[in-house]
Every structure is written in structure tokens, then in C-alpha cells.
Computed example of a mutant assay.
Amino acid sequence: MLKVYGDIYSGNCYKLKLLMTQLGLPHAWVHMDILKKETRTAEFLARNPNGRVPVLELPGGVFLPESNAILHYLAEGSPLLPRDRLEHAQVLQWMFFEQYSHEPYIATSRYIIRYLGRPPEQEARLLERVAGGRAALAVMEQHLQRHDWFVGGTYTIADIALYAYSHVAHEGGFDLAPYPALRAWLARVASQPGYAGMDEFDAAIQAG
């Protein structure tokens, strides 16, 4: 069975749980507490020397880190990853955008506010991150004004990758009111078969 090491309230981990649930992939979930530095132990670093979650453990003891690499691996051959060469590349385009221009700003802002409690010494860093996050949301809004989905007119892992931190952006101080197309897209993602939110997944994980 596949095994995921992660924290369901991390957007990078949540995106895997959402995909695996929607694809009906049986898996075990191993909770890792980042604040307790459980990803810095020698045991975990043997799985991912970069010391980050999520990590996917494959049969045979092979470990695959990096959330979007895992999304791509798991979605191969499914309707959530287009076979058309250009559309496949466009999925990767948006996933690279998510990790380079979106996640570093929105996820970091959320971490400073939700997990660190917005300490005064982080305020300058937070303001910088918020500016970058708003720029990323504006790029998404512009695209979604013309398209229901990010690639090929259908729901793909590009949507999953971008949804993960976008739907909790308010926890990082982002007001989504100026982005109506983005908000409509969030609702479309939440209406997909097999969808569940972070709290629902957490309850299921706690229940075993």
C-alpha cells in the first residue's frame, strides 16, 4: 500500500490527500508534526534529506518527495493529467507557477499568521509575502475570467495544486473579495466528486 508522510493542514500535503481520495487510491497516512521538528529526525531525513513533507513511500521502500512531483506521478494515466502534449505541458506550467510564484507567498503568510501567531519581528516579512501573494492571485483571476479551469477546459491536477493554498488564503491575511472568478473556481473545485476539506480529512485520519 502507498504511504504518505504529511500534515493534512499543510496545503502541499492536503493536495495529495485530495487527489488520492478522488482517484480512489488506497493509502496509509502518517502524521508528521512540523512544529515538533519531526521532519528533522535522522529517520525522516533518510526518507527525504530536504526535511520536508509530503513524502510518498512506494512499494519496495522507494521515497518520492515534492508535492507536485507526487501529484504528477499519481495522476499519470488518469483523466486528471491530459495526454495531449501541449495540455500536459500547460499543467506543468501552472504547477511550476504554484510552487514558484504562489506557494512561497500565500503559504508563508499563512504560516506566519496561523502557526506563529503573527509575531512583530515577522511583520516586514509578512508584508513582503502578502504583496507577492496578491500578484499571484491576480494572475489566476485573469486566467479564470476566461476559463472555468486552468487547462483544457476540465479539472486537472493543475487545479488541485493551486486550490490547496488558495482556499485557505484568508488564513494568511488575503481578502478574496476582489477575485470573483477565483472564488467561483474555488466553488467548482469543492463540487468535484470525492472532494473533502482539510477538517473532514483530519477527522477521517483521526478516526483511523
Rank of each mutant, 00 (worst) to 15 (best):
P49I: 05
E76S: 12
E66M: 04
L19F: 07
N68Y: 06
C13E: 02
P26D: 15
Y14G: 01
E76W: 09
L56F: 10
I70W: 11
V4I: 14
F63I: 04
S78A: 04
A46D: 14
F63C: 11
R40V: 04
R47Q: 12
H31I: 03
S78N: 07
A46P: 13
Y73V: 06
N68A: 07
K37Y: 13
P49Y: 05
H27G: 12
N68W: 04
E57W: 03
K36F: 09
V55S: 00
G51R: 07
R40D: 15
K37V: 04
Q22V: 04
I8E: 02
L64W: 10
S67W: 08
E57A: 07
L45W: 11
M20E: 13
K36P: 13
E76G: 04
Y9P: 00
N12R: 01
E38K: 04
E43L: 10
V55T: 02
L19D: 07
F44A: 09
E43K: 05
V30Y: 03
L25H: 02
A46F: 13
D33F: 09
C13S: 13
G61N: 08
D7P: 00
D7R: 01
N68M: 06
L25C: 02
L64I: 10
G11S: 03
K15V: 00
D33A: 13
K17H: 10
T39N: 15
T39V: 06
G24Y: 11
G77I: 11
S78M: 05
S10W: 01
I70M: 10
A75S: 14
K36G: 15
S78H: 04
A42T: 13
E57F: 03
R52C: 14
F63Q: 07
L45T: 11
G60Y: 03
V53H: 03
W29E: 15
G24P: 11
N48L: 04
Y73E: 12
L74G: 13
N12P: 01
G6K: 02
A46N: 12
V30R: 12
H27F: 15
H27P: 10
A69E: 11
P26R: 08
L64F: 09
E38F: 06
G77T: 11
P49H: 05
G11P: 00
V62R: 12
P79A: 10
L56S: 07
A42L: 11
K36D: 15
H31D: 15
N12F: 00
R52T: 15
L19Q: 05
L71G: 10
R40L: 14
L58I: 06
L35P: 00
R40T: 14
K36Y: 09
L56T: 06
E66Q: 08
R47G: 02
C13D: 06
V62L: 11
N50I: 05
L45D: 12
L23P: 06
C13A: 14
N12S: 11
A46E: 15
Y9T: 00
L35I: 03
K17T: 13
P49M: 10
R40H: 15
G77M: 12
K17C: 08
P59Y: 01
E76F: 07
L18K: 00
D33G: 11
D7Q: 03
G77E: 13
M32P: 01
